[in-house]
Every structure is written in structure tokens, then in C-alpha cells.
Computed example of a mutant assay.
Amino acid sequence: MSTESAAVREAIAGELRLMNPGVRVSRSLARELLDPEFVEVGASGRRWTYEEMLAELPGMDGAAEGGPRYQPSDFTGVLLAPGLVHLTYETTFEGNRARRSSLWRRQGTATYRLYYHQATPVPPECG
């Protein structure tokens, strides 16, 4: 297996873990997946920092056990440089679609952590 495919698989696994309600409600589990310099531009257009995301994630969509969950699809990924993976994919949540782009960073011997995330809503009329 190539280093690129292993890195991409690790980043995809991290994305999927972040969609798990048990991780979303646990500050300690979410902290393992978010880079300390994490930034997100959400589908709402809001900019989120590391501390803001850790504080708000338990109350965000997809965090309720037994509630609606994000349905991801069409993951693609590439190793941009050693320790830096770019993912793109799409999610559906309660009928709303978003196209997503993430950068996952590994520093030293640590695991990959989400460094940057952006979500763009997909209007219903778009295919």
C-alpha cells in the first residue's frame, strides 16, 4: 500500500469519526481529531475556531444519539505534501446537501488531525 493511500484512508476515517454522535458530544474525543490551529467555514458562512468548535459541537446537527446523521458520499483524497491530505466529499443531512473540503495535517509522529474544513451548501436545483 502506498503512503498516499494510507494517509488518505486515515483522513477519511477521521472525517467519519467526526460525524459519529458519540464523538460529537465528547470534547476529549473531538479534541483528538481537531488540529489546535483548526478553522472551519461552515455551510452557514460562519467561521469557527478550534475552541468554538469544541464548545459548540455537542449541540450541533448530527450529535443526538438516535437522531438524524450526516450521510457522506463520494470521498476523494490526495496527499498534497508529506503530512497534508486534502479530502473532498458530499454530505446529506435531513435532505440538505453540502459539498465539503478538508485539510488533514499530521505533525511529527501524531495522527492526522483536521486542520481546515469548508462546507458549501448545494441548492436543490443543482445536480
Score class of each variant (00 low, 15 high):
Met53Gly: 06
Ala63Ile: 06
Leu87Trp: 02
Thr109Trp: 13
Met1Lys: 03
Leu79Gly: 00
Val41Met: 12
Glu52Thr: 12
Glu4Asp: 10
Glu37Ala: 14
Thr3Ala: 15
Phe93Ser: 06
Arg24Ile: 03
Pro124Ala: 03
Gln118Asp: 07
Leu29Pro: 03
Ala43Arg: 01
Val41Ala: 04
Gly62His: 06
Gly95Pro: 13
Gln71His: 08
Gln107Cys: 10
Leu84Ala: 00
Gly59Ser: 04
Leu84Gln: 01
Val8Ala: 02
Leu87Asp: 13
Glu10Val: 08
Glu90Pro: 12
Leu114Ser: 03
Glu32Pro: 00
Val23Tyr: 09
Glu15His: 09
Glu37Trp: 01
Gly45Glu: 04
Met53His: 09
Arg113Cys: 07
Leu79Asn: 01
Asp61Ser: 06
Gly59Gln: 06
Gly77Val: 15
Arg17Met: 12
Trp48Leu: 08
Gly45Asp: 05
Ala6Thr: 14
Met53Glu: 09
Gln107Ile: 15
Cys126Gly: 05
Gly67Thr: 10
Asp61Ala: 09
Ala13Asp: 07
Gly95Ile: 08
Trp48Thr: 01
Arg106Asn: 00
Ser2Phe: 14
Val78Gln: 15
Ala63Leu: 08
Glu56Gln: 12
Thr111Gly: 13
Trp104Ala: 03
Arg99Lys: 15
Arg31Trp: 02
Phe93Ala: 01
Met1Val: 11
Gly95Val: 09
Arg27Gln: 09
Thr3Lys: 14
Asp61Gln: 13
Glu4Gln: 14
Pro21Asn: 06
Phe93Tyr: 15
Thr91Glu: 08
Asn96Val: 15
Thr91Lys: 07
Glu51Gln: 07
Pro36Cys: 07
Ala110Val: 03
Cys126Leu: 11
Gly42Cys: 15
Arg31Tyr: 00
Leu80Arg: 12
Thr88Val: 12
Leu114Ala: 04
Glu51Tyr: 10
Arg97His: 15
Leu87Arg: 13
Arg27Ser: 06
Ser102His: 04
Ser2Thr: 08
Ala110His: 08
Arg47Cys: 05
Trp48Gln: 11
Pro123Glu: 01
Gly45Ala: 06
Leu16Val: 02
Gly59Val: 09
Ala119Gly: 15
Arg31Ser: 07
Ser44Gly: 15
Pro58Cys: 03
Gly108Cys: 04
His117Arg: 03
Asn96Gln: 14
Phe38Asn: 04
Ala13Glu: 10
Tyr50Val: 03
Ser5Ala: 15
Pro21Cys: 05
Ser2Lys: 06
Phe93Asn: 04
Glu125His: 01
Tyr50Gly: 10
Arg97Gln: 13
Pro58Ser: 03
Arg113Lys: 11
Glu37Val: 02
His86Met: 14
Ser73Gln: 10
Ala110Cys: 04
Arg17Thr: 01
Met53Ser: 12
Met1Gly: 15
Ala98Ile: 05
Ala119Asp: 06
Ala6Asn: 14
Ala98Lys: 12
Asn20Pro: 07
Tyr112Ser: 04
Gly59Cys: 02
Pro72Gln: 05
Ser44Thr: 15
Leu57Met: 09
Met19Glu: 13
Arg97Glu: 13
Ala43Leu: 06
Ala63Gln: 09
